[in-house]
């Protein structure tokens, strides 16, 4: 290392004036952004957010109402197979009696 290099290296050590440090810190604190309070969302707001906001909630309610209505009163125009899928068919199974009418006649004479 040359004498000049040594001199340049030693020159790194400069005392920073204490009042300057104080003024810089004062500026820093004065300019510091104020943190904003974040209000915790309610359980309903969180639920609505999970379901996609008011658009998602609207679609969900509409689909629920439509399904309920179709279940209670299936349209006549629906094919029989769809009505059966929906589980609202009016068809019934005619049970055969274990005894025929004839048998009753025989027992009762």
């Amino acid at each position: 290392m040359t004498e000049l290099d040594a001199l340049l290296t030693q020159a790194r050590d400069i005392d920073t004036p204490t009042p300057l440090m104080g003024r810089v810190l004062e500026d820093a604190l004065a300019q510091q952004p104020v943190p904003r309070l974040r209000v915790a969302p309610t359980i309903w707001a969180q639920l609505a957010n999970v379901l996609g906001g008011w658009q998602g909630m609207g679609g969900l309610v509409a689909a629920t109402c439509a399904g309920l209505w179709i279940g209670i009163s299936p349209p006549q125009a629906l094919p029989e197979s769809i009505i059966e899928i929906l589980g609202t068919t009016d068809s019934y199974v005619q049970q055969d009696p274990s005894l025929s009418g004839f048998g009753w006649d025989v027992e009762e004479g």
């Binding site: 810190l25 820093a28 943190p35």
Partner: peptide, 16 residues
Amino acid sequence: VQGDASAARLLTARLT
């Protein structure tokens, strides 16, 4: 930026 005053002190001490 988030309001940490100790960060202001450290940056001041480090950079000034």
